[in-house]
Design a protein around this nucleic acid. Structure first.
Lengths: 335, 335
DNA sequence: GCCTGCTGTCGAATCGATTCGAGGCATCGC
DNA sequence: GCGATGCCTCGAATCGATTCGACAGCAGGC
C-alpha cells in the first residue's frame, strides 16, 4: 500500500495525495476529503524510508547512552525515558546507541549513515571523542554535560558546583564545622566527568569560604560500596557531623552504615546532597536535597536539539539548570 | 558524498561499487581495492534511508517499553540496555517507543511507517492490544512474556510459576510451615500481567502441595510500600517464618521493616524470591534467590526476532527460561 | 473580448541506494 | 580461426515518497 495506490483509488495523481497530506499546496476541499477517506479506509501511512530519502531528513534523533558495562544509574535511566517522551511530543523517533569499545559501529551507522537528524550525547566528558566526531561530521548534537570548550557547543547541564556549594552552606548555616563529600566513582572523576569534578570544586570552594574542615571521597555507584565508604570516613573523621553526597546509588549503603554505627539522622549527623528525587524520598528519613530535574533536562535537551536541527547555522547555546534544595528531614543543627 | 561520487572517483559504475561492498557479485581484486581505498579516504557510508528503500528493510528493530508514567524497574531498564547490545552485535539499530495513551502515535509511526523490520514488546499482558495490532499489521515481533494465546506467538518468558514454586519448596525443605508472598502491584495482577499471575499460581500450588499455611499480598513497586506491606503482613501473621518475593523494588523496605521489628534474617525469618541479581546481592544479608537472567532474555529475544525476520513464514516458537536458585545467606531453618 | 491572476491538479525529476539483464573481453577447446 | 564459456562491469529499472514547473479552467477588470 503506497502513495500511488492511494492516488489511483482516489482518482488523482500522487502529488495531489502528497499535498493533501502535507498541506504545502492548496487542495480543494472535495478532493482532500476523498483522499483522506481512502487513506482512512486502507490505513495508509507514508513509508518512512522513502520520505526520509526525498526530504533529506529522517525525523529521528539518536540518543547515545553510557556503555552497557557500567550499569546505568536510575537517574540516567529515567532520563532515557524522558527523552523518548519529549521527542515523541515533537513527532521524533529515538534511536538508542550505546557508546564505547565494541559499540563504535553503532555510533558510526547512526551518524555517518545519516540515520538520524541529530544526536543527544549523554554523560559527556571534559574532552570527549564522540563529541569531536559529531562536530567533524556536522551532525547537530546536544551534550548532557559540557566539554572542555564549553563556549563552542550546545549543551544542557546541571549546576553541580552551585548546588553542592549550597548544600555546604546549608550545613554551615546550621552550625556544622566538620563535613564530608561522597562523590561519584574515582574513575569518573579522573576521566574528567564534569558533574564529579564540579561537585568536588563546589564542595571545596564553599567549605573554604566558610572555613569548614572538609574531606572529599569517591565511591563506586553501589550500595555496598557506600556502606564501606561511610565506615571509612567515620573511622578517619570521628567528629564528622555533616555529609554531602552526589552519589545516589550509594545512599542505601550510607543509611545502613550510619544505622549500624548508631549515628542517628539527623540528630547526630546531617545528610544532604544532589540526587534523584525518587532516591531522596526513599531515604530514611527523607533526604533534604537538591533533586536532579531529569524531566526538565530531557525536555530542554530535546528543545535545544530541535532548534539546532531547524536552523543549523545558529550560534552555540546552552542551558545550565539549577534547582532549589527541597527541605525534608535529614538535616539539623549538630549535637 | 554518495555512491555516485565514489564511483566517479574510482572510475567505475555505481553498481560496481555496490557489489564491491556487498560481495553479492564478483569484483576483481584490483577494482575492489581501488574502490575500498576511495571509500576509506573520504569516509563514505551508504545512506541508510536510501538503502532501506531499495532493500525493503531498515535493519532496525523497535523496542516497545512500558509507559513512562509508571517508573521502570531496574530489571526492565537493564533489559533495555541488553537488548541494544544484543541487537548491535547483529548490526541492528534499536528504536525506542513508549507505549500507552499519548504515545500511540509513536507506535504507529514505527509499525505502519515501516520504520523497523521487527519489534520486541516488553511487559506484555495476557490480552494485549499492542500485540493484536502487530499481528494484524504483519510486522514480526517477539513478546517478553506471553499473551493468552501462548501457542500462536513468538515469545520469551521466565518461568515464574516454576521458580516461585521452587522457592516455596526450598522453604518447606528447611522446615518452614507458615510463609507469605510479596507480589507485584495489584493493578498489574488485575490487568493480567503474566509474571504476577504465574508467581501467585506457583506460590499457591506449591504451598498447597506441601500443606503450608500461605498468605499472598500485593505491593507497589517501591521501597516505602515494601516497608508498609511487610509490617501489615507480620501484624496479620505473627507466626510467619518464610517470605517469598518477586518485587525487587520493595526489597529495601522489606529489609528495613524486618530490622525495625527486630526480626533477624535468616535466624528468625527466611527471605527468598525471584529478583534481579544486583538486588539480591545488595540485600542484607545477600538474598538466596532465583536471579532474573535479563541478559539471557534480551539475547534470546533478539535471536528469535532475527530468526523470524529472516524467515517470516516459520511456525511460532518460544523460549521459557528457568534459572537455578543461587544459595546466598538469607534462608535457614525456622527458629 | 482579451489579458491577468489565482486556484487546483498533473507529470516528471529527484533523493541514494540495490539488483537484474546484457554485453565486453579474455581464455580455452577443437 | 571461430564459437563457447566465464569473469567483470555497466546501464537502467526500481523502491516510495517530495517538490517544482507547467498548465487548464475560471473569475474579474478594463
Amino acid at each position: 500500500m503506497n502513495i500511488g495506490e492511494i492516488a489511483r483509488r482516489a482518482g488523482v495523481s500522487r502529488s495531489t495525495v502528497s499535498y493533501a497530506l502535507s498541506g504545502k499546496r492548496a487542495v480543494s476541499a472535495a478532493t482532500r476529503r476523498r483522499i483522506l477517506q481512502v487513506i482512512d479506509d486502507v490505513g495508509y501511512r507514508p513509508n518512512a524510508s522513502a520520505r526520509a530519502l526525498a526530504e533529506g531528513r529522517t525525523r529521528a534523533v539518536g540518543l547515545v547512552i553510557p556503555p552497557a558495562g557500567r550499569r546505568l544509574t536510575p537517574i540516567q535511566l529515567g532520563f532515557v525515558a524522558d527523552v523518548v517522551a519529549a521527542a515523541g511530543r515533537r513527532e521524533l523517533d529515538v534511536l538508542l546507541s550505546p557508546s564505547g569499545g565494541e559499540h563504535d559501529r553503532s555510533f558510526e551507522r547512526m551518524v555517518r549513515g545519516r540515520r538520524v537528524d541529530g544526536v543527544i550525547l549523554m554523560e559527556v566528558r571534559l574532552r570527549d571523542a564522540r563529541a569531536a566526531r559529531l562536530r567533524e561530521s556536522g551532525v547537530p548534537f546536544v551534550a548532557i554535560g559540557h566539554t572542555a570548550d564549553a563556549a563552542t557547543g550546545y549543551w544542557v547541564d546541571l549546576d553541580y558546583h552551585g548546588l553542592v556549594a549550597s548544600c555546604v552552606r546549608h550545613l554551615a548555616d546550621l552550625g556544622h564545622r566538620e563535613i564530608a563529600l561522597i562523590n561519584r566513582p574515582r574513575e569518573l572523576l579522573d576521566s574528567g566527568y564534569g558533574p564529579a569534578r564540579r561537585a568536588l570544586d563546589g564542595f571545596n570552594a564553599a567549605a573554604a569560604a566558610r572555613s569548614l574542615s572538609a574531606t572529599a571521597s569517591c565511591c563506586p555507584d553501589e550500595a555496598t560500596a557506600g556502606e564501606t565508604c561511610m565506615e571509612d570516613l567515620l573511622a578517619a573523621r570521628p567528629g564528622l557531623t555533616g555529609l554531602v553526597t552526589v552519589n545516589e546509588a550509594a545512599l542505601p549503603g550510607i543509611e545502613r552504615a550510619l544505622r549500624r554505627l548508631g549515628r542517628a539522622i539527623p540528630r547526630q549527623i546531617s545528610v544532604t546532597g544532589v540526587v534523584g528525587r525518587h532516591w531522596a524520598e526513599e531515604f530514611h528519613p527523607p533526604l533534604t536535597a537538591a533533586d536532579v530535574p531529569i524531566t526538565d533536562m530531557a525536555e530542554r535537551a530535546v528543545d535545544l536539539l530541535a532548534e539546532r536541527m531547524a536552523e543549523p547555522g545558529t550560534p552555540p547555546r546552552h542551558v545550565l539548570l539549577s534547582q532549589p534544595i527541597s527541605l525534608r528531614s535529614s538535616t539539623a543543627p549538630p549535637p
